[in-house]
Amino acid sequence: MDLTVGPNPFFWTAGAVRGFYAALARAPVARVVIGEWVCSKRLPFWQDEIPQAVETLQAAGKAVALSSLALITLKRERKLTADLAATGLAVEINDLTALHHIPEGTPFWVGPMVNVYNEGTLRWLAGRGATRICLPPELPLESVAVLAQAGREAGVSVEVWGHGRLPLAISGRCYHARLHDRAKDNCQFVCAEDPDGREVDTLDGQKFLVVNGVQTLSQSTASMALQIEALRDAGVAALRLSPQTGDFTGICRGYAAVLAGRKSGAELAAELAGQVPGGRLSDGFLSGPAGAHWSGAAAAG
């Protein structure tokens, strides 16, 4: 099992993006997916960083793919998606729209926003050229195991959401703008104020969700720290780590150490609790009663 870093869901400054990928080049990850997958309005502010980041990452020996947007409605967004397919780099599709532009037989990756819930879908995508699929985060372990097996048979590497706030929903409406009494078309890029998303609590103060422009994420950071053995047994090829602020390359090193047997999952989980935004972990989609559940809660007392 190895590590893939997914595209950054949040709106960071060009400088922050530059620093992030320069540092990531030294992290023990096998591959990186880069690109805007949440809101096309953000792209002009940081897209000039992408060529340099790709070059740096490739020079460091990492495989690199470009991510498509997850929700594509505008003409401009369709054009962006078509352009991705023309770059010659691998494309990770996060919406079927991208597939329309990828010639049949050209290899591509599939991101977690494409609904791959069963073998029939996996096989159809493999037939179309998919070589790597990151499964939707809500799948339970039993489904993951069946799909990892189907992936091996079809020549597809199956990835699981390994670390990061969970992408729970995407909308036509921008909640960040709505919180500022603005419409999406006049958002004034307020999502840039919250580089890990803006927390949304219940009326009883329970930590619950995070809004990130048109996207809604979990407040807890999903972590497979305590599930790595189970995922390895299931035949999962890679863990996907989703960017956050703070020492992200350190977090990558933590997962790599567990994969290499140099650290226990419990040790990693204990470290992560102090490193993730909001300080809460979850792994309930894989094995718990609900996504927000954390299997380490009982052990931690």
Partner: peptide
């Protein structure tokens, strides 16, 4: 209000989802 078929808010809270 979310794009349908791409929402796991319900399963995050309850374990049971539309998809």
């Amino acid at each position: 209000v979310m794009a349908e078929g791409r929402c796991s808010l319900s399963s995050y809270a309850t374990g049971r989802s539309p998809n």
